[in-house]
Design a protein around this nucleic acid. Sequence first.
DNA 1: CCACAGGACGGCT
DNA 2: AGCCGTCCTGTG
Length: 289
Amino acid sequence: MYEQQYILKNTSSFEPKHIFECGQCFRWDEEKDGSYTGVVGDNVINVKKVDNTILFSSFGADNLETLVTDYFDLKRDYEKIKSELSKIDNYLANSIKYGSGIRILNQDLWETIISFIISANNNIPRIKGIIERLSKKYGNKIEWKGRDYYTFPTIEELAKASVEDLRKLGLGFRDVRVYETTHKILNKEVNLEKLHEEPDTQKARDTLLTLAGVGPKVADCILLFSTLKRLDVFPIDVWVRRVMNELYLKKEDETKVNKREIEKLAKEKYGALEGIAQQYLFYWKRDTA
DNA sequence: CCACAGGACGGCT
DNA sequence: AGCCGTCCTGTG
């Protein structure tokens, strides 16, 4: 374990606030100086933006440049994506201006599965608290600059938790779901390595849907925000339903809007990049609510 | 005290 | 196939 620094100059489409607060991740916290600190794998990383320079500092064993290039999706040209999506319509163009620094993270698949099962019928502060307690109890401690951080538990580490243990950590009714999914993955009833090799997004989605606690919305979040990185999905939560109804469908009662109708509309309008479009729309709608 | 917020799931029509 | 009540906890 050692400290590293990596500096990215003249960046565009990289705004820590947009990246860490658009609902895709739960392990990053803002510091008093406006930077963000989080745990990625076995590393603690701090991300600070000064003008158009991004300063990454880490404490861990992984090569920082390789790690952040992958995790922050740095090889993808978000300027080009934004300019293409902005042509579609003014609603999307405006939401892109609002969340112009969003990048979709490549998060560990296992961690993303468990995190989004916990996210069901839940709010972000509580989700973060639960994941923090899980990591503290079943992950490994990393001390850096006088503070304690905890790695997200591995499959084997989390498999040590009983349903009762999980309930005590505040998971509520999600305890059984996390327990069952952990053991299903541990037993390789669902093989995460093979899932990465599945070229067909729908087939990968069907596999995820066999996991306890994974329904359509959670499956789409996993496909989009993890290393599976499928951009042709459109996670529909209450905010996305709201924004799509207000912009396009204009039904009296948004709760009555058909999900398949939204999915069809998103595919038609946004095409293969619908997942990225969803993030701009979601962040804009929820943040300005 | 109650109302409300947030997805999966199972039972019902 | 669609609708609806229930699951749990934190907040106002």
